[in-house]
Amino acid sequence: FKEKSRGVLREWYAHNPYPSPREKRELAEATGLTTTQVSNWFKNRRQRDR
């Protein structure tokens, strides 16, 4: 994950830790990652924050 991608994901996570499938697609396009990578990032981040 590039620093820029992580920044976008972290910013989004601060507002909404549970993005919808459509939001995940938009995030994937914005970061250049796949929707699966975006989903996993959020899942792992939520797990880490428990």
Rank of each mutant, 00 (worst) to 15 (best):
Y18T: 09
K43R: 11
P19N: 00
E11K: 03
E3T: 06
E3W: 02
T35Q: 13
Y18N: 12
R25P: 04
A14K: 13
R46P: 03
S39N: 08
L33F: 08
G7Y: 10
E26T: 03
Y13P: 00
R10E: 15
S20F: 05
R48E: 14
L9A: 02
L27H: 03
E23H: 00
R50T: 12
L9N: 05
K4L: 12
R48H: 14
K43A: 14
V38C: 01
H15F: 07
L33A: 03
L9T: 00
K2D: 12
R45I: 10
A28M: 00
E11Q: 09
N16Y: 02
Q37Y: 07
L9C: 01
E23G: 03
W41R: 04
N16L: 01
V38S: 00
A28R: 02
H15L: 13
R25C: 15
N16F: 03
D49W: 01
N16W: 00
E29R: 04
V8I: 15
K4P: 04
V38M: 00
G7M: 13
T36S: 10
A14E: 12
R45D: 04
E29T: 03
S39L: 01
N16S: 08
Q37H: 10
A14N: 08
G32I: 00
G32S: 04
K4F: 11
Y13Q: 00
P21R: 09
P17K: 08
D49S: 05
Q37T: 08
G7R: 11
T35V: 11
W41N: 00
S39Q: 06
N40T: 10
R22W: 14
R22K: 15
R25K: 06
E11R: 05
E23M: 06
A28I: 03
R48L: 10
R45K: 08
R46E: 07
E11C: 01
N16R: 03
T35Y: 15
L33N: 02
H15S: 14
T36A: 07
P17D: 05
L9D: 00
P21Q: 14
Q47L: 11
Y18E: 10
F42I: 02
F1V: 07
Y13F: 07
K2P: 06
R6E: 14
E26V: 06
Q47H: 10
V8E: 09
A14P: 02
P21M: 14
L27P: 02
R22G: 14
R22Y: 14
Y13D: 04
S20W: 01
K4D: 13
R50L: 12
R50M: 10
L9G: 00
E11V: 00
W41K: 02
T35S: 09
N44T: 08
P17L: 06
F1W: 03
A28W: 04
G32N: 09
Y18L: 12
P19W: 00
L27I: 05
E23T: 04
H15E: 14
K4C: 13
K24R: 12
R48A: 12
P19R: 01
R10T: 12
L33Y: 06
Y18A: 10
P19L: 04
Y13K: 00
A30E: 10
T31R: 00
Q47A: 05
S5N: 13
K24F: 12
Y13S: 02
Y18G: 04
P17A: 12
K2R: 05
D49I: 05
S5M: 13
Y13R: 01
A28H: 13
R6H: 07
A14Y: 08
L9R: 00
S5I: 15
F42T: 03
R22T: 15
A14H: 09
K4G: 10
T36E: 13
N44G: 08
N44E: 12
K2G: 10
F42Q: 02
R45H: 14
G7T: 13
P17S: 07
R22A: 14
A30D: 09
Y18P: 03
T34L: 06
Y13L: 04
R6W: 06
Y18V: 10
R22L: 15
R25M: 13
P21N: 05
E29N: 06
D49N: 05
T35E: 14
K2A: 07
E23P: 00
E11N: 08
Y13T: 01
D49K: 01
E3L: 06
F1A: 02
S39G: 12
T36K: 15
F1M: 05
G32Q: 09
K4T: 14
E23V: 04
A28G: 05
N40H: 10
T31Y: 00
N44P: 03
T35I: 14
E3G: 07
E11L: 02
W12C: 01
P21L: 15
S5T: 15
V8S: 07
F1E: 15
A30I: 11
K43T: 10
V8Q: 08
E23I: 00
K4I: 07
K43I: 10
K2V: 08
V8T: 11
E29C: 01
G7E: 15
L9I: 02
K2S: 14
E26G: 08
V38W: 02
K43G: 07
R6Q: 12
K43V: 09
R10N: 11
E26A: 06
F42C: 00
S5L: 08
V38E: 04
D49R: 03
R10L: 14
T34Q: 07
P17M: 12
E3D: 12
